[in-house]
Amino acid sequence: MQNIILFHGPNTFNLEKTLKSWIKAFYDKYNGDLNIEILDSQNLQMQEILKKAGTMPFLAEKRMVVIKNFLSESDKDEQKKLIENLNEIPDFTILIFAESSPPDKRTSLYKKLEKDCRVEFFEELEGLTLTNWILEQIKKHEGKISSTNANYLSLYVGNDTWQLSQEIQKLCLFASEKEITKEDIEKLSTPLLSTSIFKLTDAIGFKKQKEALNLLERIIQSGEELPMIFHMLVRQFRLIIMIKECYEQGIPANTIAKTLKQHPFAVSNILKQCQTYNFDELKKIYKKLLDIEIAFKTGKIYITTDDKRDFVLALEKFVMTS
């Protein structure tokens, strides 16, 4: 049943883009939108799917039916009924299941589609693949950027291709005919939490208390949950300690990256941070972070949806005294 296709995967940007290109190609080839049907899964019943898919194409050879989020949102009984009737979908109909949320792979319908139909999985972009994607998108917007700065953008913003697409449009408009620089990225783009935490630990290492407090305030005001900010802060200092230990044992940066499963670019940046801390300082910092965690878990630091002052004060005190 190669005329029945499942689109799913974490890279919903490329999924939506591919789906739109399929619909456009079909539109151009088969008499406009007369033979295209797009259905929402809410309250969608098996009989309606069979009816739409079984309708003869109008003045064309093919018909396309797209069902969005049927596997993740529809009634399980309707899914079971559809499994029994998938063979009734005529060859002239291209039936696409497009899932923007991860489908449950344990369901009978998913297993049936995976076994007998065509499955297109859209995986997250990482490393060189993500950098090349950024270069390609910037070229499409008639912008210019070096491979080094494209890689920096991927680390600064992360691999959310929806957000990256918005940042790329913004950067291309700002730079106009000039090449996009690292300074442009830092000035205009919304950083990943880990990027902001890196800058915060950098400021702490160089004893820039005012800058560190401003960075902390910006991170909090960005809407990130305080426990997540704290977790990322702990993670960053843990990485600094582990990378510093490895480096002082004479282990090369690339080997450190592979061992700790970190991006080589991130490791090279943290190695620069390592130079601003000695092990005694890192030990004291980690002890302070541990004290905050214990206070939080034992209720000494009280936090609710409306009142987060205790946690904020603890983080500010940590920044001021580290």
Rank of each mutant, 00 (worst) to 15 (best):
L19P: 00
I138D: 01
L6Q: 05
D160L: 06
K140A: 09
A266Y: 12
A266P: 03
Y286G: 06
P57F: 10
L282S: 04
M232Q: 09
I168W: 12
K52D: 07
S165A: 14
N11V: 02
K288D: 06
L193C: 04
K287F: 15
D310V: 01
L173S: 14
K105Y: 12
L188K: 09
I303C: 04
E179V: 05
S189H: 12
S146H: 08
V66E: 03
A253F: 14
P264Y: 11
L192P: 00
Y277H: 08
E179C: 05
T12S: 01
I229A: 03
T107V: 02
T298N: 10
D291A: 07
K105S: 01
I256L: 09
E88Y: 10
E78I: 02
F318Q: 01
E245H: 12
V312R: 08
K187C: 14
T18M: 09
L216G: 04
K20V: 04
I83P: 00
L226F: 08
E136I: 01
E177D: 15
E167V: 04
I303L: 08
L290P: 05
I145E: 00
S41P: 02
F311E: 00
L95M: 02
A257R: 12
S196D: 01
T190L: 10
P102K: 14
E167G: 02
M46P: 03
